[in-house]
Design a protein around this nucleic acid. Structure first.
Lengths: 121, 121
DNA sequence: CTGTCATTTTAATAATCGTTTAACAATTGA
DNA sequence: TCAATTGTTAAACGATTATTAAAATGACAG
């Protein structure tokens, strides 16, 4: 179970347009991740600014970096993301979560929406 | 589907210890909500400060207010919360969400964890 | 080595945010 | 109406945050 301070840190990290876009891109890319340069190109962010935001996300535990030669690969940390989501919804509706049900179909294994098409923004 | 700016607003609203505690309390209380005074008492927050944070959460669409006599009841807006969570996990792992699976058992109807005990912090 | 590529760090600036205090509504019951 | 209760608003202050440009690091190919 995550602590409040950790969750606040993770939410703060995501509460910024550029970082939210970075994170969503990494979520789509899965555990292998993509290079910092690819992220910069896809999102049109300057290297210095991107590095600043990577650090914030990384410090919050939401992404992990792995160096490969000259490149640095970044990937989403799904455990922390899921921990944060669980913290937000814990004990919802006094143990009767059906009271806040959403019609969307979600993957029962991880609570992610079951979409077939892939697109961002 | 929520827009990036709305999600950033919702995440910003939750990215603060007091507001996160307020929201979690309201999530547990369900759609009926509780009064501002009860929240103040449970969390030990001054009325002025609480009102300030209510406004931020309300402006982000995460909570709704309803007046009843002298009291103002606040309740979590589950639709916006679920929309925010869906936005974060959209298209995860290029449509193979099993790659980021979490062992926790989640309610397939809404993605909330299935807990039996109720407790905060 | 030397130069180039990929990324990070530093420093500076402007903008936003959280808390407190005090004063201000709105509702109700005597 | 008067006073008590419940909650909101306004102003002021210190603290945090995002962006930019420039310099610096680290890795590799020739």
């Amino acid at each position: 179970m995550m602590k409040s301070a950790e969750v606040v840190k993770a939410l703060s990290a995501l509460a910024q347009a550029t970082r939210l876009a970075i994170f969503r891109l990494l979520v789509v890319c899965g555990p292998e991740g993509i290079t910092a340069g690819q992220v910069a190109e896809k999102l049109g962010v300057s290297p210095a600014n991107l590095s600043f935001h990577f650090k914030t996300l990384s410090h919050a535990g939401l992404i992990v970096a792995r160096q490969d030669g000259r490149f640095v690969y970044y990937a989403a940390n799904f455990a922390v993301m899921n921990g944060m989501l669980a913290y937000l919804t814990e004990n919802c509706c006094e143990g009767n979560p059906d009271a806040c049900v959403d019609p969307k179909v979600l993957n029962p294994k991880n609570g992610c929406p079951q979409s077939t098409q892939i697109k961002l923004d």
